[in-house]
Amino acid sequence: MLLEPLLLTIITAATPLLVAALGELVVERSGVLNLGVEGMMVMGASCGFVVAILTGSSILGALAGIGAGMALAAVFALMTLGFAANQVASGLALTIFGLGLSGLIGADFVGARRDPAPKLHLAGLSDLPFVGPILFGEDGFVYASVALLLGVSWFLWRTRTGLMLRAIGDNPISAHALGHQVLRVRLLAILFGGGCAGLAGAYLSLGYTPFWVRGMTAGRGWIALALVVFSSWIPWRLALGAYLFGAVTILQLYAQGYGLGVPSQLMSALPYLATILVLVAISRSHGRGAGPASLGTPFVPDH
């Protein structure tokens, strides 16, 4: 049966994209555009791997990844909320900074190897034919990503705080006038986004490919940003997009393996080309006004 391992690998390829993009979705819903996902993700990958090697624990590694992502996000928050700096440029700075720092931190661990994070089998259920291993035999990160998807959906549409966050993203001036703490909510959203990006990065080095290479995120942070646009800032569409991209990534790998006579570089470029096509298609149908209204605009409260 070829389909089953195929679906399993697609899910593993989609999970980091989903986790990072869910975090960024919450950030953007609060009106902040953090382009530094790639930098936070690669920091999560490097710190997660280093801690996992040193402690021998995947869970501590994942926590370290989350912490590293949040630490970098805190720098971004200081820049964009504290100093009201340009969000696009600050995000780029975060990416450059994260790529360099992760390389310094992971330099001594290049070539180190460890077993990937274990698959968690649910007694009985994972033995079910076909659906068993796919639904009930994944590693902890995959379950965490599904929980995160449900949690973010519930939070944004079923809680008062979620409503307030969305209102702040659409009109921070009115929300401020109503007495909401715009900068505090945005700070928490940015930290959450950083934690998600860090976790996604940790999954890359702990589960997806269990080793560390410099710059191993290879643009996944940017694809996650594109997925948020693709989703029109709606979590379930984000999941759809992430799994579609996981499929594109894996299918091009299979195609390279079978040697279809197409240059391997063209196949490797496919996910990036697909991202561009998707951005064009989605922007064409929604126009530019689909996102949170204040996205990318700094807010400075006048006390």
């Binding site: 696009v88 290879a218 643009g219 940017w222 570089q265 470029a269 561009i276 951005l279 064009v280 530019r288």
Partner: peptide, 29 residues
Amino acid sequence: LRVFFGANEILTSLMLVYVAQFGLDYLVR
């Protein structure tokens, strides 16, 4: 893509960096 379809130029221009790198890699190999 931005002018005619409204696609975000930050993301498309960055994606094209990866495409160019693969293109160069193909040509020199």
